[in-house]
Simulated scan of single mutants.
Amino acid sequence: MSEKTARRGRLLVAGTALAVLSLGLSACGSTTKNTATSTSSSGSGSATTSASGSANPNAPLKTGLTVAFLPKQVNNPYFTTSDGGGKTALTKLGETYKEVGTSSATDTAGQVSYVNTLTQQQVAAIAVSAQDAGALCTALKQAMKNGIKVVTYDSDTNPDCRQVFVSQASSEDLGRSEVQLLGKQLNYTGDIAILSAAQTATNQNTWIGFMKDELKKPQYKNMKLVKVAYGNDDAQTSFQQTQGLMQQYPNLKGIISPTTVGIKAAAQYLSGSSYKGKVMLTGLGTPNDMRQYVKDGTVAGFELWDPGKLGQLAAYTAVALSSGQITGASGETFTAGDLGSYTIGASGIILLGKPTVFSKDNIDQFNF
């Protein structure tokens, strides 16, 4: 099938995104969402910075810009929340929000096809959560050559393939803190496993690298990482991988799942098994997904940032880029609406902030 034909086949208009994760997530098809707001005379095409390419922090924000969100997987509750935050921010600014993407978290060719289509449509900016660090580069570079601003969020691509990466938090903080959480729960003793998403997921692999480095410290000498399993951000696969881990390693004491789909699926399996309360589970999850498992004792604690705010920050960044307020250079500062002021760091990275640890003591204070 040609790439042109594939693009045509993937551009399907979607219904309302699923708000609740089920074990029957579809592995085929695709979704497109488009919410238009009122436009101004600036139009909805791409905007560029000044001819010199320098930032003008006092430049007014353009309105009527089309900003497209391309998550790793549509109809995934995490991305439903994050992209919903992007939509909220764009609507406030008078922009047009668009979401496109595949329903599989491993359809890298699908992501490439969508980037190419968005480039042809001349959107102002693309906010993408990359399934693979390098696979999107050629398409994203072409988009930038066409004046389209590129922001990555949640999962980065190579730095030269985008202007800014909006990161959830420091990758090192996230990776090390998950090991620290589990270490305390296990009294620093026992075999552990990691249940990740796709093997190519940039953010997952970066976090896992820091997890492995944290485990080298003396306090973890009695903890051993026996396996890294991959659930491909699919609920059914992640459930089966958890079951497989327990069959392969019956003495397993703990699991870290740095993916919202994976940790919920693992909790579902453990809560209905003889391992409940005996095998500790932590990682990255949403309070609404994990509330019942914290309250029934399956999970003592886990962490995450607010995905809605992550999407908002990605949207504000895209508009600031399109308006010429920033170019993505280190040290540039801009205001992201109610989120406040942000400064771009090295390699064009913006950090949303520190993750929050959720437990039975505070989980009812959050609703996302």
Rank of each mutant, 00 (worst) to 15 (best):
G86V: 12
A133F: 14
T81S: 14
Q131R: 08
T96E: 09
E95A: 15
A127T: 07
S82Y: 01
A89V: 02
A55G: 04
G45E: 07
G94T: 06
T96G: 02
K62N: 06
T48W: 15
T119C: 14
P77G: 04
T49E: 14
V74Y: 04
G94C: 06
P71R: 02
V112G: 07
T81R: 11
Y78M: 02
S104G: 09
A133W: 10
T96S: 12
A105Q: 03
K92R: 13
I126R: 03
A124L: 03
Q120K: 13
K87V: 04
P77L: 03
L70K: 07
G110C: 08
T81F: 10
T49P: 06
D132Y: 05
S52I: 03
V100M: 10
A105P: 01
A59C: 06
D83Y: 01
G53D: 08
V123G: 05
T39S: 05
G94H: 02
A130F: 06
T117V: 12
K92Y: 04
L65K: 09
L65C: 10
G45I: 01
Q111P: 06
A133H: 08
S54Y: 08
A135D: 05
S38E: 14
T96M: 04
T48C: 14
T96K: 11
L93C: 08
A125T: 01
